[in-house]
Write a protein that binds this DNA or RNA. Structure first.
Lengths: 197, 197, 197, 197
DNA sequence: AATGAATGAGGATTCATTCAT
DNA sequence: GATGAATGAATCCTCATTCAT
């Protein structure tokens, strides 16, 4: 928990620069909230409003609707990757982090389905890339004899299955169902929580 | 206020009331296609166009967006119910019919998720009723000691899980993934095919 | 779902935010004209077109149909209030200003009828508030022994009566009929003209 | 109160003939109800539905929207004419009948305003004719020295004024306001009731 | 770099009117 | 004559996107 001096990174950190980064973060946070309230088809204007910025700012940071969603998911994916990279994590614990994001982020669920037909035109190709990063992160922890190591696809099919089970209005219910899903798969899952350093 | 009709245009043949039933069927077929291409949020006008009728006809037959979806799904659900009602069917075979509809109808997948928060405002309450009909149909065939009989929710969670796995552009791939999903659940599934008498 | 814009078309000049106030005023002016031509049920698109702006602008400035009408009437009501607030005005002169607005603004007539059953769904509740403001303004000038001071309702009934008489294609005819109406009521009315400072 | 044999009128009174007349009457009754519930812009389909007939029947009897309104009003006007034609009626009593129709029929109120700008495109020219018939009927009873005999227009202006005052959700309130209006005009009005033989 | 107004296409919905049965 | 389905134009309203300030 060392505190970096911002100035160590890039000297000219003037007001504009800092505000831009703050806006970007605010937009992503806002998008995450709006997505979970309204779904992935929420109006972009709602996201900008929630973030407290003009719509122009949104377009400055993200060229289009996809880019916003990608940025939101990017963070979920990165947390899974970071958890996976953490030395002392084993598969159950990494799955716990993954599951936390599944239960917390409607958008993240969407992206793991995003190769299918019927997906709503938004959430297109980039989802594939994100999905693969999740797979790599998980596979790094997959012991040879594991249930999900039998066939190449089994790992991600299992993740898709769990995400399919994650429904319901409250996070609590979604977590309960996610746990039930892992149990039905006979896969051990650790504490369902975000990754923290 | 006033609604004109350019008087020179000749009105395209009114085919009379025989067409009513045909149109309704055409609308449902069109909706099924459009849904699988564009998702459940597809514009209703696209459905009407595909069916070769005016938008008014769609609204005559279905009061709102929900009614269209319901009509499409109704048929999937009914096939599962009919399969379940068939004397010589056992659970695997009923699951095979269910799975066939999962792989064939993107909309049908949607409906089994339909209690979720992030679901896009469409797919609302009626989905609950349809989902329950599916559950009843399956449960009638569930032997006491079955894997999915342990907890009350397990049955439908398993179905949701499989539906979560059913992605991909071609029906073949979707079927392959569905089979893999059932296998990971340790549940036997019969031939994946529609119910025919 | 996705909103295209034909990329070859050049977007008609965005005149920037200076235009906002101008547009709002243009919309109100246009609405006043359109209302007097087509009645209060005129299509909003006609108002936008007349104002020379896109429909979105109308919706930006006025959330719904009511808000447009309110904005138009607001001005009529305010002029009556201002006339009433003017020190040297007596009742006849205030009635003259009221009458001028009755003869000039068909919409304003409508609002004074706006509690009726058969009124066409538009002209709803907000009209009540406007009507009460007019009443307060007039009553402040009503001498105790005045013809219209006998019963509580008489004042506004008289106004409604005059507004009922105000018909006809030209402002001149409407003014003539309004004067005749006040004469039949035995009420003195001053010069029929707008309030100017 | 002699009972005529229908067959006295035109022998061939077959089922079709009778049904047609019945339908016409049902349509007018339905239109009157719908008008008073929804205003003059009510959908024609609502009228047909209320009358319990298909829309085609409506178009058989009435070529367009105007014709329906005219037919409804025709009856109001005729009652006033009949009252006026009745030997023992004096002006107050005829005005009572007129007032009854004003309070009972939103459509009838509309028609007396129907020459004005701002009238909603429907209710056009034929209203003029109906209005003149009302005027003739009343004028026949107007004594020479009567308040409303001073200027040529005074009679109909007074009627318009009263109709302007007739607002409110219940017939009772409308009648009360109508009476107040006549009182303000210093015109005596008899019992407010329909004309019966 | 931020703001937020304007544009206008697109989708939903309603209804007048016609016409096969 | 009656029925009621079909048509499609018109209206309402929402948003993605651009751009002057």
């Amino acid at each position: 928990m060392t505190q970096h001096r911002a100035s160590e990174e890039q000297r000219p950190a003037n007001e504009g620069r800092k505000a831009a980064a703050r806006n970007r973060a605010a937009l992503i946070t806002a998008a995450r909230e709006i997505y979970s309230e309204c779904g992935l088809d929420a109006p972009l204007s709602a996201i900008a409003r929630r973030a407290g910025v003009g719509q122009g700012v949104l377009y400055r940071h993200f060229p289009d609707r996809e880019a916003v969603a990608t940025a939101v998911l990017e963070e979920n994916v990165r947390q899974v990757e970071q958890a996976a990279a953490e030395g002392e994590m084993d598969l159950p614990r990494v799955l716990g982090v993954l599951t936390w994001h599944l239960t917390e982020s409607a958008a993240f669920i969407g992206v793991l389905h995003a190769d299918g037909a019927g997906s709503p035109a938004s959430v297109p190709s980039y989802a594939r890339a994100l999905s693969e990063r999740v797979e790599r992160a998980l596979r790094a922890h997959l012991p040879d004899g594991h249930r999900l190591a039998a066939a190449a696809d089994d790992l991600m099919i299992a993740v898709a299955m769990v995400s399919g089970a994650v429904t319901g209005p409250t996070r609590e219910q979604r977590e309960r169902r996610a746990r039930a899903a892992w149990r039905l798969l006979g896969v051990e899952v650790g504490p369902v929580r975000p990754f923290t350093g």
